[in-house]
Design a protein around this nucleic acid. Structure first.
Lengths: 189, 189
DNA sequence: TAGTTTTTTTGCCATTTGGCAAATGCTGTC
DNA sequence: GACAGCATTTGCCAAATGGCAAAAAAACTA
């Protein structure tokens, strides 16, 4: 809970009463590795803050291959914004890469917070923009890099993640096969 | 101007008086091909709505190669959000790919609109989120595709853009060399 | 139109990555 | 420790892409 509050406080002021309200509206959810937080085809009705563990967002392309779009680690929110905002079926899965501890907010809870806490919408909009900007600026340079450079950049930005994520998932995130990633690893050592 | 108003009306209601105010706060800027709207190293102080033409956002990677991050065509806003929001130097260039007609808002103008038009912030936040989500969902699948598939997807989504954009820029957007793109084109014909 | 410049296509060969299957390594269970 | 099940590495070869330079095509200018 502390993690979440500290995270929120980066984006705006909250008094103790507001913090308590936020706390009371959240629900702790524990996921085992490979469990799904949300699934493609269903409408996203919850938002999760990752207190502990790693999630990934993935989907199946038209060849039936499973593609990892990105990872979400500690102190980040997970939600399919398109699905949640417009209440349309999601096109992606959110799945636990490791055992996870999530703080989950329902749409109703968020609405309550929005109606009660003056600064709430501002905070949420900032977080939304920031996390989307991060996604863009993380993915975008990858296109211009070859596989080795992408892997090195990943190691560089998320040194602590590489060993917590199975090679097959990391490969699908980097857009290469797991054999290739294995060779790249060997090559780097 | 009509384009802009219609675009804004998608995201919220505006009365005639508000529309006039918005109009009065915007400034028409004409760019010639290759002109810059904003430059890396400088702080973004303006937001542009592309009324006509195509912009691109680009930067130089550590090998000195010029990389096109994305294109912005008619009826979309262009701004380096990070730079504009936090008033920090931009890391990218915004450049005209074709001659362009832009509607430009200064930070002050936007502040005035925000203070005067109740719905303004809500509209802007929606536009921000939507355009970022679009960027992510456009770029993200590209990583999992090979060059040919990326080009075909591009043609598919922006059939009218491909012939207006020089091959070298399109190649740098797709993350391949221009020779490769040229070969892929031949291969498809 | 001829000449000039820019853009796009090609050829040739090196390097990277993929596809597939087998081998190896690792982890947990009995 | 032996086994089963999963994850990772490796070998082999094919396909995709890059690098570089020259040729061809297209766009622009005088």
């Amino acid at each position: 809970m502390e993690n979440l509050i500290n995270y929120l406080l980066q984006f705006g002021q909250l008094n103790q009463q507001q913090i308590d309200l936020i706390t009371s509206k959240s629900k702790v959810v524990e996921l085992k590795r490979d469990d799904y937080f949300s699934e493609a085809g269903k409408i996203a009705r919850q938002v999760a803050f990752v207190d502990n563990g790693i999630l990934r967002v993935c989907y199946y392309n038209n060849k039936g291959e499973e593609i990892t779009r990105y990872f979400i680690d500690e102190n980040n929110f997970a939600v399919d914004l398109n699905s949640f905002t417009y209440q349309i079926p999601s096109s992606e899965y959110v799945q636990a890469v490791t055992d996870c501890r999530l703080l989950v907010f329902s749409a109703d809870a968020l609405k309550d917070l929005s109606n009660t806490i003056i600064a709430w919408n501002g905070i949420i909009n900032q977080i939304t923009a920031k996390s989307l900007i991060e996604k863009v600026s993380r993915i975008s340079p990858m296109l211009a890099e070859d596989a080795k450079a992408r892997y090195i950049s990943f190691l560089d930005k998320f040194p602590q993640l590489a060993n917590r994520i199975p090679l097959s998932l990391l490969a699908s995130y980097l857009g290469i096969t797991q054999s290739s990633l294995s060779r790249i690893r060997k090559n780097i050592r």
